[in-house]
C-alpha cells in the first residue's frame, strides 16, 4: 500500500543549549486532522520541540519532515538559507504564549499581513478570508482596533486567526493560554476545540489537562527532554504506563484540588 506521508514527521530530534541537553532523540508523527497535545513539567523541552519543528531553533540532531519534505535541509543536503526556510514556514502556522501580535498593525492587518506580503495572494481574497476568520473567532467588531486595545483572550483569538490565514498544513500552539487570566482561558479553548473538530492538524504544547483529555487525539509526554510516553488521552490519563507520567498527573491533580 502506498504510504501517504505524515503531515509532520519528527525523527529523533535533539537539541542542546551549551551543556544542557534540552531534547534528546524525540520522535513524533502526526497524521492529517490529528490534535496532538504535548504535555510535561516546565523545563521538559516542550516549547523547544515545537520551535525545532519550524526551525525557530535549529535542531542539533535528527530530521523534521512536513508532508514528506525535509525542513531546514535542502535536497542537496545543505542547511537551508533564510529564504528557503521562509518558504517552508509559510505552510506552518504558529500561536505564541505571549500572542506576539504586530503592534503597529490593526487586528485585520495582523491577519492579512503574511498572506499578502509573504504568500503574495491577492488582497481582496485575503481580506474576505480574514473577515471570515474574525467572524469565526468572534472579533469582527475589533477589526480596526490595535492589539494594545484588546484583552489577552482577544489577542490570542487574533493570534489564532492570523495563524489560520496562511492556510497552514500544520498549526503549532506554544502554551496558548498560559499568559491569560483564568477567566479568559475558556474563550480561547473554545476556538481551539472547534478547530480540532474541523480536522485542523495541530500540535499543542499546553498545561490545560482538561483540554488535552477531551480534545486531543493523542498526547505525548515529555520529561527532561525525552518522549517518555505517547498514546491516546484515555490511556494516558487513566492508565499512564510510566512512573514519571503518574507522578506528573498526581501533582497536577493535587494542584487543581488545592485551588478548588
Amino acid at each position: 500500500m502506498a504510504a501517504t506521508p505524515k503531515v509532520l514527521d519528527v525523527a529523533g530530534v535533539s537539541k542542546r543549549f551549551g551543556s544542557n541537553e534540552v531534547l534528546s532523540d524525540v520522535s513524533l508523527q502526526v497524521d492529517k486532522g490529528e490534535t496532538v497535545c504535548v504535555l510535561g513539567p516546565s523545563g521538559s523541552g516542550k516549547s523547544t520541540l515545537l520551535r525545532c519543528i519550524n526551525w525557530l531553533e535549529r535542531p542539533d540532531g535528527g530530521n523534521v519532515y512536513l508532508n514528506g519534505k525535509q525542513i531546514g535541509v535542502t535536497s542537496a543536503g545543505t542547511v537551508m538559507g533564510d529564504r528557503d526556510l521562509s518558504q517552508v514556514r509559510t505552510h506552518i502556522g504558529m500561536v505564541f504564549q505571549h500572542f506576539a501580535l504586530w503592534p503597529h498593525l490593526t487586528v485585520l492587518q495582523n491577519i492579512t499581513e503574511a498572506p499578502i506580503q509573504v504568500q503574495r495572494r491577492p488582497r481582496a481574497e485575503v481580506d474576505d478570508e480574514a473577515m471570515a476568520l474574525l467572524e469565526k473567532v468572534g472579533l469582527i467588531d475589533k477589526r480596526d482596533a490595535f492589539p494594545a486595545r484588546l484583552s489577552g483572550g482577544q489577542k490570542q483569538r487574533v493570534g489564532i486567526a492570523r495563524a489560520l490565514a496562511i492556510r497552514p498544513d500544520l498549526l503549532l500552539f506554544d502554551e496558548p493560554t498560559s499568559a491569560l487570566d483564568p477567566e479568559l482561558v475558556g474563550e480561547v479553548l473554545v476556538v481551539m476545540r472547534d478547530l480540532a473538530r474541523e480536522g485542523m492538524t495541530m500540535v499543542i504544547v499546553t498545561h490545560e489537562m482538561g483540554f488535552a483529555r477531551d480534545a486531543a487525539t493523542r498526547v505525548i509526554f515529555l520529561d527532561r527532554g525525552r518522549a517518555v510516553e505517547t498514546g491516546t488521552p484515555e490511556q494516558f490519563f487513566t492508565a499512564p504506563r510510566t512512573e514519571r507520567a503518574r507522578q506528573f498527573l498526581q501533582r497536577y491533580a493535587e494542584s487543581t484540588n488545592g485551588k478548588g
Partner: peptide, 30 residues
Amino acid sequence: QPREPIEAGVAFGFSELRLFRRIILPPLLL
C-alpha cells in the same frame, strides 16, 4: 522591543529585508 513579535515574523515566513521593513522597522519608528 519584545522578542516575540519579531520571532512571529520569522515564523510566518518573513526574512531579510521584508522582515526588517514590514515587522521590525515600523514599531521602531513609532
